[in-house]
Design a protein around this nucleic acid. Structure first.
Lengths: 141, 141
DNA sequence: CTTCTTATTGCAAATGATTTGCACTTGCAA
DNA sequence: TTGCAAGTGCAAATCATTTGCAATAAGAAG
């Protein structure tokens, strides 16, 4: 069952007062279906498979609009390209497999707690954070 | 005494077999003096104060060459520009003050340890990592 | 000190990702 | 169904960074 999503991106767009155009419908569909963290070029490619002719500038503009409304999250990993994922319900961090480029999500309450603690020790409070572990699979083969 | 550096960047360049040109001498001097994490434009500006006429392409090329030889570290914070610092002797992570843009270094053995542990649990080994805490000062005023 | 080789530089043009101006289209509230 | 702001396509602009090429200069060898 790929459709265990509580609320679809289209619904959330409506709630935010964004117009649902033909091209947006496709973009949102692609985003909802994506379990990875595609960049704009990849999104545009996937959109084009469903409905050709959508301009890549439209994809850029749509992603910016969605990010403004906190409906998606933007990431910039070390490849220097902006990547996106539908706004997660739970915060998480990322492994990036340096050999395959694959992005895997993870979450550690303990690390989160330590971050808060260290920030506090330095007189800061955390606004947001980014933890990326660039990894490779442990050799077992 | 600002010169408590164990080894100057110029020395390390010589050891790496890089030629010490006039423009490099200035760039390295600026880098050694920098306690922040300047981007190329800022470096170029500081170099220009000491010796005008150094081309920004030279700064880019020099930074790339230094990074190749692990004499500096490159960072890309959320502003999307490449920033540099002389290669630190000890690994550290960064606070970024979202109000001032200031970058502060910190280090936590415990977080480092936890990262290793989590990676291991997922069948990974860490190649490198990036931890950035975007923070603001705790209100005490 | 001169000579030679090759790394380095300056400049301008190229690149690659992303944004924007503008005229045209379309969602959707009234 | 109409009106208009929001959205779109397209091409040109922008911004950071890289690159080709001809000229220069470091530094090793003599």
């Amino acid at each position: 069952m790929t459709k265990a999503k509580h609320e679809t991106l289209i619904d959330r767009c409506r709630e935010s007062g964004l117009r649902i155009t033909g091209q947006r419908r496709v973009i949102l569909e692609v985003l909802d279906a994506a379990s990875d963290h595609p960049d704009v070029e990849e999104l545009h490619r996937r959109v084009g498979e469903i409905e050709p002719g959508v301009n890549i500038a439209t994809v850029y503009r749509t992603m910016n609009k969605l990010a403004e409304h906190d409906l998606i999250e933007r990431h910039m990993f070390d490849d220097g390209r902006l990547r996106y994922e539908p706004a997660p319900e739970e915060h998480h961090d990322h492994f990036i497999d340096v050999e395959t480029g694959e992005v895997i999500e993870f979450m550690s309450d303990e690390i989160e707690r330590l971050q808060e603690e260290i920030a506090r020790q330095h007189g800061f409070e955390i606004v947001s954070h980014k933890l990326e572990l660039y990894v490779k699979r442990r050799k077992t083969d």
